[in-house]
Amino acid sequence: MKEFKGRVITPGTCVSEAVVSHRGFNTLASLQKALQFVDKSAKVGDQNNPDLFGKPIAGKALCLPQTIGSTTGGLVLYCSAVMKRNPAAMLFYNPIDSLACAGAVLASVWSDTAMPVIDNLGKEFEDYVKDGMKITIKDDGIVIVE
């Protein structure tokens, strides 16, 4: 078990299972199919991301460096939150990018879904966390991985 501290972008607590990407998460390419068609598990559709391709991320703690790609990204994330197909939490190794931040903020201000988003968790977190590990997120940016 290891404890990490990051910066809270949008608050919340949760216990969930980690799904880990070491590449940029292309929000549109990853979530479009899940939103368009009946896939409540939100399997990742981005063929360029072998870490995540085909894996379900709804209700999981998505661990990632940053999001990339289309500027629909934040809007897609917001829709996924309203439609309850969003990750339970998003945990960034790096500082958050503008599209992911937009999605997190829109979900926080304009929806009733609480999706804790924490950034700056660092390289050590990235190296330690693996798919399937248990993630506990506390209010103050503390992330426990076991």
Binding site: T72, G74, L75, V76, S98, L99, G103, L106
Partner: peptide, 19 residues
């Protein structure tokens, strides 16, 4: 956005839809 910033010299962040 990348064209406006780079080729035109305007100033814009990579804003998301809705923002």
């Amino acid at each position: 956005v990348v064209y406006a910033n780079s080729v035109l010299g305007a100033r814009c962040n990579r804003n998301s839809g809705i923002i």
